[in-house]
Simulated scan of single mutants.
Amino acid sequence: MAPGTGTSADGGDDVRSRDLARLAGVSVRTLRHYHQIGVLPEPPRSANGYRSYAASDLIRVLRVRRLTDLGMPLSRIDPLMDIDAELALLDDDYARQIEHLRRRREAIRALRQRDTPVDTPAFAREYLAVVGGRRELPTPSVEIERDAALLLESILDPASISRLTALRQDEIERLADVSAALLDLDEDASREHLDTVVDALVSVLRQVTPLLLASRPTPDVARSFDVYVDDQLPPVQRETVRRAVRRLRD
């Protein structure tokens, strides 16, 4: 290359591209990408074969850069597009993202305030807080309930989870009463007490079973829940659950 000429082995294209890139605050590679995808039309070439960029090309690159800085994908940028409509769509998208992040922050705040394990499903937080407050229940029993809620979250569909999340406080207290009664059972429980717990479980299962059926769990998923119950509950509690299920099916 001759000193001071500004030309290069590719015929001077890089120099002109570099000038435009410098003014627009982008890279030469970005300019070439704009050409490839059609965001910036190829400029006409001068008599010596160099691309000849005009002021309008600089304005277009500045506009494209402004739109991409706002987050608009290059694939949506077109000279004929309705910019106001596109910006409205972009604004709506950001509003949804902000709302999504707001809900995440609320969930994190709730977990931190209550010192709740991070894997606790949102729909079960109030319920587990009530169960955890029962002095008669040891920590392992509360953990069993938490793990069961995590399994349920993987089984239930969004509509069923929303219904559980919307349970009233008195309904949550009722569920906690039944769970506490079941988890507190031992081999010394009387027949009458066992029957009372079975009756209470049947009532709860009548409330929960429609949610499970609506979610249409696969046989493997349903079986995994049954296996978990069998593995975690002591014999007297396991048999009590089975009696309630048989009663419900009869």
Rank of each mutant, 00 (worst) to 15 (best):
Leu101Pro: 01
Arg103Asp: 12
Arg104Cys: 10
Arg105Glu: 15
Ile108Ala: 13
Ala110Asp: 13
Ala110Ile: 15
Ala110Thr: 15
Leu111Tyr: 13
Leu111Asn: 11
Arg112His: 09
Arg112Asn: 13
Asp115Gly: 12
Asp115Phe: 12
Asp115Leu: 14
Asp119Gln: 11
Thr120Trp: 06
Thr120Phe: 07
Pro121Gln: 05
Ala122Ile: 15
Ala122Glu: 13
Phe123Trp: 13
Arg125Trp: 07
Leu128Gly: 04
Ala129Asn: 03
Val130Asp: 06
Gly132Asn: 01
Gly132Met: 01
Gly133Phe: 02
Arg134Ser: 07
Glu136Cys: 07
Pro138Phe: 05
Ser141Arg: 00
Glu143Thr: 15
Ile144Met: 05
Glu145Ser: 12
Glu145Lys: 00
Arg146Trp: 07
Ala148Thr: 14
Leu150Val: 15
Leu151His: 07
Leu151Trp: 06
Leu152Glu: 09
Glu153Ser: 07
Glu153Met: 02
Glu153Gly: 08
Ser154His: 14
Ile155Tyr: 04
Pro158Leu: 03
Ala159Val: 14
Ala159Leu: 02
Ala159Ser: 10
Ser160Val: 05
Thr165Gly: 07
Ala166Phe: 04
Leu167Gly: 08
Asp170Glu: 14
Asp170His: 12
Glu171Val: 01
Glu171Met: 05
Ile172Thr: 06
Arg174Cys: 08
Arg174Ser: 13
Leu175Ala: 08
Leu175Met: 10
Ala176Cys: 04
Ala176Gln: 06
Asp177Leu: 02
Ala181Glu: 06
Ala181Gly: 08
Leu182Arg: 02
Leu183Thr: 00
Asp184Val: 00
Asp184Met: 03
Leu185Ala: 09
Asp186Leu: 08
Asp188Asn: 08
Ala189Trp: 06
His193Lys: 03
Leu194Gln: 06
Asp195Asn: 04
Asp195Met: 13
Asp195Glu: 09
Val197Tyr: 04
Val198Met: 09
Val198His: 12
Asp199Met: 10
Val202Ala: 11
Val202Trp: 09
Ser203Thr: 04
Val204Glu: 06
Leu205Tyr: 02
Gln207Leu: 15
Val208Pro: 01
Thr209Gln: 10
Thr209Asp: 09
Thr209Gly: 00
Thr209Phe: 02
Pro210Gly: 01
Pro210Phe: 00
Leu212Phe: 13
Ala214Gln: 05
Ser215Pro: 00
Ser215Arg: 03
Arg216Met: 10
Pro217Gln: 03
Pro217Tyr: 02
Pro219His: 09
Asp220Arg: 11
Val221Trp: 01
Ala222Cys: 05
Ala222Thr: 03
Ser224Gly: 07
Phe225Cys: 09
Val227Phe: 07
Val227Leu: 11
Tyr228Met: 14
Val229Ser: 04
Val229Tyr: 00
Asp230Lys: 11
Asp231Ala: 14
Pro235Ser: 14
Pro235His: 11
Val236Lys: 10
Val236Cys: 14
Gln237Glu: 08
Thr240Val: 10
Thr240Glu: 05
Thr240Arg: 05
Thr240Trp: 12
